[in-house]
């Protein structure tokens, strides 16, 4: 904030700073930072739910196994519904994206946590990898016919070139909106929560009001974290469908 020496010094962006864990000032490529820590925790959480949960291989599932099966069935059905049966080849990739985003979002809600998905670097890499692989896959599977994606056959002939321009622009905006949606939603909630928490510290006795607000906001953020993971995954499926079936 601009008034660093003011009394109301709320610094909502501090929680997003990438810093080395074991001393040092510079953040090199291989430095172990809080990013490393929280991504490692994400891996552990995914392992705990998906591997340890299904360890028993019980025919009648235990509680943990039900969760793992639920996640499996949820994404499996999503791909089947949105992309079609031939999209199931990419099930492990989409599952990886969903699991990472979901647990990074959820873990980021722990107080003092660092939210890896609130950084454009992370979400942009995810979105760009989806965008590039979908584009490459589209051309590999369909050849030049993939370009028919931009040529709307159902529209009047005169409108088609204009629509094609719009379609191409919207195609290239996809990774931008795909990544900024996730990072923005995560960042927004955390920053707002931090601002309200700062009010609580500044208001003295009346701290109850902002604390209640933060509590409500936290519930909303939990919902947003889940929905953003869902949305990121379902949009991946939608884009994948364009690569597999480019005709509208």
């Amino acid at each position: 904030m601009a008034d660093a020496n003011g009394s109301l010094a709320i610094r909502p962006m501090d929680q997003f700073v990438v810093r080395p864990l074991f001393g040092g000032e510079t953040v090199g490529m291989f430095t172990i930072t809080n990013v490393t820590l929280w991504m490692a925790l994400t891996v552990l959480a995914v392992t705990a739910v998906m591997v340890l949960g299904a360890r028993g291989r019980a025919l009648v599932p235990t509680r943990g196994q039900s969760v793992a099966e639920l996640a499996y069935g949820f994404i499996y059905k999503m791909i089947e519904d949105v992309t079609g049966r031939d999209g199931l080849r990419f099930f492990p990739y989409i599952m990886t994206i969903f699991m990472f985003v979901f647990f990074a979002n959820i873990l980021g809600l722990i107080p003092w946590a660092f939210t890896t998905t609130s950084h454009f670097a992370v979400t942009a890499v995810l979105a760009l990898s989806v965008f590039i692989s979908v584009t490459v896959l589209g051309f590999v599977l369909n050849g030049a016919a993939f370009l028919r994606l931009f040529w709307v056959d159902s529209a009047p002939l005169a409108l088609r070139p204009i629509l094609a321009v719009i379609e191409i622009i919207s195609y290239f905006v996809r990774p931008v909106s795909h990544s900024i949606r996730l990072a923005g939603a995560m960042m927004a909630g955390h920053a707002v929560a931090k601002v309200f928490a700062g009010f609580a510290a500044a208001l003295g006795v009346a701290f109850v009001v902002p604390v209640l607000a933060v509590t409500a906001l936290y519930a909303l953020e939990l919902l947003v974290a889940v929905i953003q993971a869902y949305v990121f995954t379902i949009l991946t499926c939608v884009y994948l469908k364009d690569a597999l079936h480019p005709h509208h």
């Binding site: 990438v18 953040v27 090199g28 490529m29 291989f30 430095t31 930072t33 990013v35 490393t36 991504m39 490692a40 994400t42 891996v43 995914v46 392992t47 998906m50 591997v51 299904a54 291989r57 019980a58 025919l59 599932p61 196994q65 793992a68 099966e69 499996y72 069935g73 099930f91 492990p92 990739y93 599952m95 990886t96 699991m99 990472f100 890896t116 950084h119 670097a121 992370v122 890499v125 995810l126």
Partner: peptide, 30 residues
Amino acid sequence: PNQIFWLVVTLVVIYLILSRVALPRIGSIL
């Protein structure tokens, strides 16, 4: 660079865990 490096490492690890252990196991259970 730091974030992208660790992200790639994380995604590869999660992918390996899911595709080698978790998904076949859950798939076979189902």
